[in-house]
Simulated scan of single mutants.
Amino acid sequence: MKTVDEAELCFPQLLNTSCRKTMLSPSVSLVIHLTLSSISLLTVFSNLLVIISIYHFKRLHSPTNILLLSLAVSDCLVGFLISFQIVLIDGCWYLGDIMCALYVVLDYAITAASIGTMVLISVDRYVAICYPLHYSSKVTTERVKMCVSLCWMIAFLCHSLLLKDSLQKPGRYNSCFGECVVVLDYVGGIVDLLISFIGPVAAILILYVRVFVVAVSQARAMQTHLAAVSLQGSVKITAKKSEIKAAVILGVVVVVFLICTCPYFCVILMAEDAAVNASSVTFLLFYFNSTLNPLIYALFYPWFRKSVKLILTLQILKSDSSDTIVM
């Protein structure tokens, strides 16, 4: 029979080197398990709906939606990463040092890819609102696909290099068995903050301030001339309104993203060292953003609601369903 001390250890057989568990009551542990499991399933399922919608329906293959597809892929992967947080509920990491290193690298890379995609979304809206006559020639589907691919490759390459010590020698920073800790050196931490937070957030804020200044001026101009426009002018105004509406919706996505992301990076900025414990609660707030994005799409995008209805009723299995008009 186990002693009290053994019951509190992650690995009782390693009495002197094992980490201690975070002791939770059965009811609290059950609630946390159910909550995280629900969030994980909801995140994966809802983002899969976004991915299937944009990938399947040809009418949705626009540059802006390609960016939303990239964001949905990162959000879906985050849903899978939440399952690792479920493993860590009792404060113990049971999957080994190699999996710990891979998990943290994936977390960093997916975070960077998400933020990079947010920057691309901001650039897309900036060009659409500030240079509408040049948008179709400057922002093409092929160019956006190339930018998204580069964003993901750079995110994985940079963080593989920044965390190469942990990848080469997994578990080197653990103080006991059952811990999952990765450490960035001082220079690596500064570089990560610059490329994953400070630089992208500054770019997003600058671009969106410019977008909304121009959008407000365009909205006022439309109201002023609304009564004296021809049919052709009405079409142009409707197009402008559509672009402004898209900018507002994606602005909501960006604001929610920043609200959920900033606390994590603020904790890193204020930390005494660059150690990252995989059980950090600040990860959870960032993860929760991935659950919110599809809900924002469902609230604001009629095409997403229509696509979901077609997917859930299995209408997409029809041979000509990809040509369905959902916009």
Rank of each mutant, 00 (worst) to 15 (best):
V119M: 07
S137V: 15
Y126C: 12
D107M: 13
T140D: 08
M153S: 11
V148N: 02
L102K: 06
M118I: 12
I129R: 01
D124E: 15
K164Q: 11
P132I: 03
L163D: 00
W152S: 05
Y108K: 04
Q168C: 13
T111V: 14
S136H: 12
R125G: 07
Y135L: 08
L150I: 13
C147M: 14
E142V: 14
P132V: 06
K169W: 10
D165K: 05
P170N: 04
L120W: 03
Y126G: 03
L162C: 04
I129N: 01
T111S: 13
I115Q: 04
K138M: 14
S137R: 09
M153Y: 09
V148P: 00
V127W: 04
S160G: 15
L102M: 12
R143G: 14
F156V: 07
V144H: 00
V104Y: 02
A101I: 02
H134E: 15
S136Y: 09
V104L: 10
G116T: 04
S114V: 10
L106P: 05
V127M: 11
F156N: 00
L157P: 04
A109W: 01
D165Q: 09
Y103Q: 04
L161I: 14
T117H: 05
L102N: 08
A113W: 05
T140R: 08
L106H: 10
L157N: 06
C147R: 05
S166C: 10
S160Y: 09
H159F: 12
L133R: 11
S166L: 03
F156E: 01
Y103C: 05
L150A: 11
L161S: 06
F156I: 05
I110P: 01
W152C: 07
P132F: 07
L150N: 07
P132T: 09
Y173H: 09
T141P: 06
A155F: 06
V148W: 00
V119K: 01
E142S: 15
R172C: 06
D107V: 15
Y173Q: 04
S137A: 14
C158M: 15
V144L: 08
P132K: 01
Y126M: 11
V127H: 04
L163A: 08
L167G: 03
Y135V: 06
V139I: 15
G171T: 01
V119Q: 00
I129F: 07
V127Q: 07
Y135C: 08
L162F: 07
L150E: 05
G171Y: 00
M146T: 14
A101W: 00
L120M: 10
V119D: 00
S166A: 12
A128G: 09
Y126A: 09
D107K: 10
L102E: 03
L106Q: 11
K169R: 13
C147N: 08
H134D: 14
M146F: 15
C158E: 08
V144G: 02
K169Q: 13
I110Q: 00
I110T: 07
S137N: 10
A109P: 02
Y131P: 06
D107S: 15
Y103W: 12
K169T: 15
L102Q: 08
